[in-house]
Nucleic acid binder design. Structure first.
Lengths: 151, 151
DNA sequence: ATGCTGGGTTCACTTGACGAACTCAGTAGG
DNA sequence: CCTACTGAGTTCGTCAAGTGAACCCAGCAT
């Protein structure tokens, strides 16, 4: 994927999905945000086929979203683990937005996971804000504004 | 999809992706947010195969994200168009988050589309905030906090 | 040398995406 | 009435992607 699919001209959503839109990629990143770093742990948490995980991890490393770091445990040989880069960490709001929608609209009970601000303990959510500091309610309060047209 | 795939127990990201995670779904919604409502216009904007669009639109209607509304133009027979429901509009922050990441990390130039606050004209972005009003910088300032454990 | 473990690769099979061709309802023109 | 046209699909053959089980390999322990 990565460049062949989708058309990025209308906006960057397509570009982002070309990088993280394949099956399992975003779930893999969710696990990464929850602290998972090793192949076997990703596999156990997700239940995805190994071949797919191998492929997705390689893609994410190649895209600079994860990076391989060597480590070694107890009496085992040296291996590597997968860690988020800052580019990867920038996907956090996207994951939280997906989670928040699911919590609100698919709930069979209380949300399975809540996020709280480490400093103050208050619940964390995603919001749309403008640079003048107003909170924006939704798409109706936003005007899209095309930049340079399709090149 | 919709229920067979993924495991929703760890958090709602999987649930949301089960609904909108198939290829073209989120791009279709992007177009909906840009004002597209008719089958042929979705097809032209996206270039996706008709069979896939038919399927994705039906899924989104079934999930209550889009709704079919009758309309008729000039001297044509009555048809229906697809419009966002409030459940669908709640996906706006997710789309903006995806777009923002692409703008930041995939840029070959200026972003193809900018969003401005209709009231004040200032640029709009997604942010993580806590209920005490602090802006949260990233995953490191957030503690996950499991609710009811895996059923 | 034998077995165990983490991190893969290979392979047969099923599911999903693709694009071209076909369908069908209604409207317009002749 | 017959024909052509349009929007919104459906059908179909082909190709790509995801799935699950089996296999591989390095190194540590026995």
């Amino acid at each position: 994927m990565s460049d062949a699919s989708y058309d990025r001209s209308r906006c960057s959503v397509a570009g982002t999905l070309a990088v993280v839109g394949e099956k399992w990629s975003l779930l893999l990143l969710r696990e990464a945000f929850l602290g998972v770093r090793r192949f076997a742990d990703f596999q156990q948490a997700l239940g995805a086929p190994k071949a797919v995980l191998t492929d997705r991890l390689a893609t994410l490393v190649q895209e600079g979203i994860l990076r391989k770091e060597p480590y070694q445990a107890d009496g085992s040989r040296q291996r590597h683990e997968y860690r988020l880069t800052s580019k990867g960490r920038d996907l956090y709001p996207t994951l939280v937005a997906l989670m928040q929608w699911g919590d609100r609209h698919l709930a069979d009970g209380p949300p399975p996971l809540a996020l709280v601000h480490a400093d103050c303990g208050a619940p964390v959510r995603v919001a749309l804000v403008c640079d003048d500091g107003h909170e924006v309610a939704g798409p109706r309060d936003v005007r899209p504004h095309a930049g340079t047209p399709t090149g």
